[in-house]
Design a protein around this nucleic acid. Structure first.
Lengths: 225, 225
DNA sequence: ATTAACTCTTACAGTTGTTGTAAGGTTAGA
DNA sequence: TCTAACCTTACAACAACTGTAAGAGTTAAT
């Protein structure tokens, strides 16, 4: 069954939510902002995130932006903040719906179902700031242009974008693409990096993949650095 | 610029909406339920529909369902009905968001932008009952299976599905695929029909394209016949 | 400055998928 | 039965993608 992650520090409210969702058949995982919420959410790979904004440790807005850039969602903000500016801000940063507490369980469920239905047919774009990557179709959008990537190019790009601003280890990339292969030439990754860089050049994204000698590769630029 | 269709009978409210949206740069077309709203909406091919529920001639719910079945949207319901059951009903029938009047212009605009953004990345599936066609990606979904169609196969399939249950004239298909070509062999359509049929066979969709001798081809079966 | 390890680039060939052509076979209906 | 309409199959051209190979360039430590 679909897994929903709840990011909420209020224990009472959290349990109430869990009860509602579990009755509806969802598998629920709750995360508080005192743990390492971002990593936990990603590793749970939920089909929907319910997010409170009033977290003592970390701004809900930051979580929104972080998750959206990595193509994780949908995000439903459920908060007691009923100010319009909060709603506008959340929606702008990537929240997909914004409900204020108290919220009738049926409304919550209806909105959850709507978002999940919308997302089922969506091609999620990984956002790197000045370009977006459709990881299902392997298409790169740069301003008004777009270019289609090959399977290999898409896989590499996906890893780089998701890791921003970290460095992706070359072993990691190698294993991901050729880990199950019998034997491949040792420079296969380099060749494919050259090809990807050339493709990026064609759409004006030059010098965006940095080589970190001995370690791996890193996507640079965009809105994150 | 993006076109928004407003379905609203209250003249005053309609003009207020038009003013708000036009200030935001949208091109707006208003439709009242006294005309032939369904056809008008489709022929306007809007990028979003703002729908009132309290229409004297036709239920807003009916409009929702009608539009959704034809893959037209997104639909934003904007109504004075603030009962939960109305919202649930509208969402279930295909509305993508539900706002109650009075609604702050900024909230309306934010929700509109959110929906348009979601839809821009959505692959709408043409529904033929027992299978679905993703016309952007040329992928055919049959139950839990899916198969990727070639460009030609996808174009033909798209025409057939959209025309169901009518016959598509062979000249029409020919012009659509090879109309701009210098010269092509006269049996090119037949060859491609054979290929498409063979591909459909592979996913269990046998004998679904009927030849109408002298006229063209017709998709049969599914939930429409 | 030298050197060795690391990285990049380019050309080539094999593979796969798509497409149009050509030739011949089959079917429907008068 | 006869013929126009339709179907099928094989073939070759083409484009895209991929891995291999060889050689060139770059970096950082000595």
């Amino acid at each position: 069954m679909a897994k929903i992650v709840i990011v909420e520090d209020d224990v009472y409210l959290r349990e109430e939510l869990e009860s509602i969702l579990e009755k509806e058949g969802y598998s629920v995982e709750s995360i508080s902002s005192f743990d390492s919420p971002l990593e936990d959410i990603i590793s749970a790979s939920p089909s929907l995130i319910i997010l409170d904004l009033n977290l003592p440790n970390l701004s809900g807005f930051q979580i929104c932006r972080y998750l959206k850039a990595r193509g994780i969602g949908p995000i439903l903000v459920l908060t007691s903040r009923n100010q319009l500016r909060d709603e506008l801000h959340a929606l702008e940063l990537g929240a997909d719906d914004y409900l204020t507490k108290p919220c009738h369980p049926k409304r919550l469920i209806a909105r959850i179902q709507k978002l999940q239905h919308l997302y089922a047919n969506m091609h999620i774009l990984l956002d790197a700031g000045d370009f977006q990557l459709d990881e299902k179709a392997n298409v790169l959008y740069v301003g008004k242009n777009s270019i289609s990537l090959s399977e290999n190019e898409g896989m590499i790009m996906k890893s780089l974008v998701k890791a921003v601003p970290s460095v992706v280890k070359k072993e990691e990339l190698f294993n991901q693409l050729w880990g199950s292969s019998e034997y491949v030439d040792e420079n296969i990754l380099q060749v494919n990096m050259t090809r990807l860089r050339k493709t990026l050049d064609e759409v004006g994204l030059s010098n965006r993949i940095k080589t970190v000698r001995g370690i791996g590769y890193q996507l640079i630029g965009g809105s994150y650095q």
